[in-house]
Design a protein around this nucleic acid. Structure first.
Length: 423
DNA sequence: TCTGGGGTCCTAGGACCC
DNA sequence: TCTGGGGTCCTAGGACCC
């Protein structure tokens, strides 16, 4: 790669290698550990007793045992009985992610957080600076390791899709390019499952159609693809040809579309009142997060996963927008009652969507006084929780109950958009 | 399978309207 | 009514990502 064409924009994809595991390893070393988790078979995994036992991240030596992200900890331990299992600590990950973001921002203001461990960074007018993008990528990689103690892969190209794919080539601690002129030689020979958005279900479909490599997809007939896979097929073909043009959006993080929390319960819940309590504990968090970003929702949805893993969901569009915990809970409870078939419950979810920037109420449903009362109550509770911690205030219903009064994702955590199907 | 939790987007089918 | 066709909205479910 001595010659790099003059691209107007250079985009890099920075991806932390085995993020959760690397971050745990770096912290352990700082705290005086004598072994580096990255050098032994190890994983970050959920708690089996709480039925959350899946592999969230794995070390390179663990990968050699054919341990895969997403499989059960149980099965991983069968493959490697000496496996070290580290429980996840999301606060640490958020901190590490923020530190990486700050470091990247010292190179360019065009930094887009794509997920907790992935960033896109953009550089304009590279040719004008007479600088070699590869050299810069190596410099960033080395500085991340020196200052933060973990390795990253960096993919370099002219658009986000190609940069991301390049970052996925050989790991860890590598820099790769995938410029448009390299697509045929570097991208097309790859198995089609390596392409972004070709997942568990689509891969066998493509194989049935005789499409095995990215190149097969890139050269497949448009009509045939449209017929078999609708618009998704054409999107995939474009990806296979490296066609993608979204901008690195630094200052305009996409508005969140919805907020939801869910939990797998330690035991199967078989009674309605207990299920309601869990819904309430999840709704507390959803309401807090919604109010924290000053938005109102007019759609509430509830999801239930039974112990046999069958799923049902139920949603309702409201003719008003709200961010009141008690109103969201009332609707959620109702939705639950309408759809629960009595099967033992493993997992419960509540989510709100159709978000707006202003409240609009249906006045005949609740009078102004009630609305104002609910608003003030939520506001006061939010403030107390912020000042004295999340467990400082909770509803009386929880006081003699084993159920945690608040459950689910973090309120201060919605500052970046998560994955979306279009880069 | 002893199978998490946070998201986004798409599609099919039904209700409803003209 | 032995009922056409197009458009929009809503809902459930499923696909994908990390």
């Amino acid at each position: 790669m001595n010659e790099i064409k003059n691209y107007q924009t250079i985009i890099m994809h920075v991806d932390v290698n085995s993020a959760y595991l690397s971050w745990e390893a770096a912290r352990a070393l700082e705290n005086g550990a004598t072994i580096d988790y990255r050098d032994i078979p190890s994983i970050v995994g959920g708690n089996q007793k709480n039925r959350q036992g899946i592999v969230l991240a794995k070390s390179v030596p663990a990968k050699a045992y054919n341990i895969k992200t997403g499989e059960t900890v149980y099965s991983a331990l069968k493959k490697c009985p000496t496996l070290l299992v580290v429980p996840p600590s999301y606060k640490l990950y958020k901190k590490c992610s923020n530190a990486l973001e700050e470091l990247l921002k010292s190179y360019t203001p065009h930094v887009q957080r794509f997920s907790i461990d992935e960033f896109f960074i953009g550089f304009n007018g590279f040719a004008a600076h007479c600088q070699n993008p590869l050299k810069l990528a190596f410099q960033i990689r080395d500085e991340v390791f020196e200052k933060l103690g973990f390795t990253v892969n960096i993919g370099v190209s002219s658009n986000k899709l190609l940069a991301k794919i390049a970052g996925d080539f050989e790991k860890p601690n590598k820099v790769h390019t995938l410029f448009p002129e390299e697509i045929e030689s570097k991208l097309w020979p790859l198995p089609v499952g390596d392409l972004y958005m070709v997942g568990r279900k689509t891969l066998p479909k493509l194989k049935t159609l005789g499409i095995f490599t990215v190149g097969d997809l890139a050269n497949a007939d448009d009509c045939f693809l449209k017929h078999k896979l609708k618009s998704f097929g054409m999107m995939l073909k474009n990806y296979a040809r490296g066609i993608e043009s979204s901008a690195v959006c630094a200052d305009t993080p996409r508005q969140v579309k919805g907020i939801g929390n869910s939990t797998t319960i330690k035991y199967d819940v078989e009674n309605r009142v207990e299920a309601h309590m869990i819904l309430l504990s999840l709704t507390e968090m959803v309401g807090m997060r919604l109010r924290a970003i000053k938005r109102w929702a007019s759609l509430v949805a509830v999801g239930i996963k039974a112990s046999d893993f069958s799923k049902v969901s139920h949603q309702r569009k409201l003719d008003f927008a709200t961010n009141s915990t008690s109103i969201i809970y009332d609707v959620g409870k109702q939705l639950f009652d309408e759809v629960w078939n009595g099967k033992p419950i493993r997992h419960l979810a509540i989510r709100v969507a159709d978000l707006t920037d202003t409240a609009h109420y249906q006045l005949n449903l609740l009078d102004g006084d009630q609305i104002e009362k609910k608003r003030k109550l939520d506001h006061t509770i939010d403030q107390l929780r912020e000042r004295y911690g999340q467990t400082s205030v909770f509803r009386g219903a929880f006081s003699n109950s084993p159920i945690a009064p608040i459950k689910g994702g973090t309120a201060d955590d919605c500052s970046y958009p998560s994955m979306k199907s279009q880069l």
